[in-house]
Each structure stands twice: as C-alpha cells, then as structure tokens.
C-alpha cells in the first residue's frame, strides 16, 4: 500500500518519465508534483483537458455511464498519460505522467500506471 508521495515517486520511476503530477479534478488543484515546472498551471490545464475529453466522449458515445480508463495524448516529443482514480467521496483524482517519446514504451507505461493507481486506492 502506498501514499500520495510514493505514488509520484513510482510514476517517476517509469522508464522515460519526465514529470508526474496528481490533480484534483473537481477543483483543478495540483495535489503534488515531481519534475513539473509550474504545477498550478499544469493542474489547471490537465484538468480542463480531461473535462473536455469526458464531455466529448459522452456526446460521441452511445454508452451511458462509461468510465475513462486513461487518456493518451502524443506530442512531437512526449506522451502525456492521464489516469483518473475514483475516490470515495470526491474526485476523480488524476495521475498524469509525461514521458519522453524516444525513451519510453507506451504499453509498459500504461500497465505501470494502472498498477500504481490500484495500489494507491486499494485498501
């Protein structure tokens, strides 16, 4: 079982990780971050990006009550992985990791991220 700080350290140990941040989606607040230059801005931006994805997929999808497992955005130099975690009374909490596109393995990173989030909320 891990806490918030360990969860970030674990995320940073994913091969190719450049930065990791935990974001409270409701308020758009940076809970904690590592390797992120401006956590406040990053949290606000990632939170909006996730919200837009959620709304867009809700309109495009026939499913009601779907859940987003993760969001992957690829830029020229990096992968951005966003994984939501449902908390028991609020949330979700987003674990966001930026990975070097040259040095990382996307499939591996997704698996690792999933393990980390499972460990954070599993009792």
């Amino acid at each position: 079982m891990i806490g918030i700080e360990d969860c970030l350290s674990e995320a940073m140990s994913i091969p190719g990780a450049l930065g990791a941040i935990l974001v409270d989606h409701t308020s758009g607040m940076a809970v904690a971050g590592k390797g992120i230059a401006d956590p406040g801005r990053a949290a606000a931006g990632l939170s909006e990006a996730y919200r837009a994805t959620l709304d867009g997929i809700a309109m495009a999808s026939q499913e009601t009550g779907f859940r987003i497992e993760d969001v992957i955005v690829t830029t020229g130099s990096a992968y951005h992985l966003v994984r939501p975690m449902e908390m028991m009374f609020d949330g979700p909490l987003l674990l966001c990791v930026r990975l070097d596109v040259e040095r990382s393995n996307l499939a591996l990173a997704r698996r690792r991220l999933r393990t980390i989030t499972d460990e954070l909320v599993a009792s």
């Binding site: 079982m1 891990i2 918030i4 954070l120 909320v121 599993a122 009792s123």
Partner: peptide, 20 residues
Amino acid sequence: VEKGVLSRGELEFCALSATL
C-alpha cells in the same frame, strides 16, 4: 488504515480534501 477501512492514499486525500 490498519482496520482496512481505507488505504493510505485515500486517507491522505480524505484529510487533504476535508481540510481544503
């Protein structure tokens, strides 16, 4: 946490969230 009511991560987030 010991009793298994919630995980450490959840406890931290719970305290943080209630505090804010």
